[in-house]
Nucleic acid binder design. Structure first.
Lengths: 338, 338
DNA sequence: ATTAGCACTCGTGATACTAGAGTGCTAACA
DNA sequence: TGTTAGCACTCTAGTATCACGAGTGCTAAT
């Protein structure tokens, strides 16, 4: 559908635009990239490419800039060059044993990605349906108020303060948690079955309180509550792409709220590298931005690290950086790359 | 030192400048505030006030704007009007029993403050020297890697992944934590004494591992690691004060890193309302911004909620808002005020 | 199919000018 | 002596104008 030369022109334009930030004209392409052809030839090609929807003009008589489709073309070509088979699950498996734990690891990942990319680094982990739990603990805080701590397999910690219909002593709570922890490593559904009998038979006075506690516990186990981390956003203020304040504002608002991050995670549908560019994004707030992320499914939870930036992003650098961080997290050495 | 009329002029200027955002001239003051005096009179007063360091001119032949000293004058007068005796410790005492727990409460406080003030809401809690602990839990994640969970009195949860010199079974870890939890509610120093004997005598093979675990635990108990929450920062992009991107950038950078928040907390030296304006701030990043915060000491930890915004902040509104949130948190109803 | 040439478009930056708001100062006034 | 009116001066923000340059589209020649 696209001739060889058209592809060359496209890649040149996108590359040059990413590098310079200014709309690129036919002359530039003819002089720097396709030196064998005159600017007029390029001009004709560009005109065709515009009609096909790969390029657009900010205004008549200025150079061309890529559309989302154009970026997609470029990114796919970059992805072909990068050997994505390198990505292994090793790192995520070892995360739980990482000296920082999974949360610390994700936090520093988002931080590092922010710094080296100068865009916004993000990281998140969300339990899937069949998450297994590792540990449950109830801590009595005050009358009828209990802090519920749940450690999922992989080391992810969830906490919630719940209030019970009955005041229970710490001893009773300990007993309850001990009985649950017997099932450490099991899926919740199994645990639930076994516990029902216990509640029915052995507890009388505290039945309702325990039932309430278990309901809360189930809520945590089942609901796919996401844990998200966002690196420093302040670098992006430097980018020429965000001279328009309202643009960066909508993006910030999007990233600041949990729903935003949840959507980003959701959009990383496949394992490995995911790239969603501009218009491809579902949320209006992301229509002029892009996400590059790597995700893995392991231990019954989906983990993702990535970078959010302008559509005009240095995809090549970001992709390789994410690759680096991916594997660096494995070894636990997280000095800043490059 | 300041005549009655000079004070009136000062308050008028600051009030008007906060409201309008534009430098205020003598004519404005004479027409809207001190109607009994001509603009020339005001002009002379303003000239004097400038010499005294309360006002300054952005450029010759424009109106005056307050200096940090000028804001201070105004804020102190506002504080006199607001009955700060209303602030009670009640709310913080009940935080541990709050349905969201202290962390949830602080998070929503910073969130609410951001939204109603349109500046940046912040909230933090930091344990002081004599913090008491409520609960300790060790969860074995993998070979020699253990997740250490500590619940401080008040419901604050700290977590850390530690690696031990020895692989310990979950049973041993449970035993260790059970022995520590006997001392729930005590200060760490006491616990330490009592545990030493136990380690020396009863444990042999695991001695070094337990000692390592306890060292880590002590690290958490002693180090005043701060837990900070920052509300949405995107609103501030709308403010005319931050048309200059570099200004908001330095501020963002400051708030994004933990040291920044730590400094803000540190600067809230006294209980109750603290206000630090512009030049009064230690950090260069805050020299053109202001902090309004309320802090309390309770349960061996210092808790703070506040607002960071431009020096030209609507202090009156912010102060009363913080007051509101302060007391709203108590009751647990956190619908948005106003 | 490619290229050179040319007229046309449009954004950018420089310059100049004006209107308006505000000051400082002096002189008159109570 | 404190207050006020008046006036000249300063500085900013906004606007209009102009020229330049980069780029396009089209046509005609190769």
């Amino acid at each position: 559908m696209l001739t060889e030369r058209q592809l060359e022109v496209m890649l040149s334009v996108v590359y040059e635009y990413i590098k310079s930030g200014e709309s690129v004209g036919s002359r530039t392409v003819s002089r720097r990239y396709l030196t064998g052809h005159s600017s007029a030839t390029i001009r004709n090609e560009m005109s065709d490419l515009e009609e096909m929807g790969f390029l657009k003009q900010p205004h008549t008589s200025s150079g061309r800039i890529p559309t989302t489709l154009g970026y997609r073309l470029y990114v796919d070509s970059v992805l072909q060059r990068v050997d994505s088979s390198k990505y292994s699950k090793e790192w995520i498996k070892s995360l739980g044993e990482h000296r920082k734990g999974i949360e610390g690891a994700l936090e520093s990942a988002s931080d590092i990605l922010s710094r080296v990319s100068n865009y916004v680094g993000v990281a998140a982990v969300t339990p899937l349906d069949k998450v297994k739990f590792q540990r449950v603990d109830f801590v009595r805080l005050g009358e009828r108020n209990v802090l519920l701590l749940v450690v999922l397999q992989g080391g992810l910690v969830h906490q919630k303060v719940i209030s019970l219909p009955w005041d229970m002593t710490q001893e009773y709570l300990d007993d309850l948690s001990r009985r649950i922890n017997v099932f450490a490593g099991c899926e919740w559904t199994e645990v639930k079955k076994s516990l029902k009998a216990y509640i029915m038979e052995e507890l009388q006075d505290y039945k309702s309180a325990c039932a309430a506690a278990l309901r809360e516990l189930e809520g945590i186990m089942i609901s796919p509550s996401i844990k998200a981390f966002t690196g420093s956003m302040s670098h992006m203020l430097n980018l020429p792409d965000f001279q328009d304040l309202s643009r960066i504002q909508t993006l910030y608002e999007f990233l600041e709220q949990e729903e935003g991050m949840a959507e980003l995670v959701k959009s990383c549908s496949k394992e490995g590298i995911n790239i969603i560019i501009g218009e491809e994004n579902e949320s209006p707030a992301m229509k002029r931005s892009a996400l590059v992320a790597a995700s893995t499914i392991c231990n019954g939870q989906m983990t993702m690290i990535g970078v959010v930036g302008p559509e005009r992003m240095d995809y090549e650098k970001v992709i390789t950086t994410i690759d680096r961080v991916f594997r660096t997290m494995d070894t636990g050495s997280d000095e800043e790359a490059e």
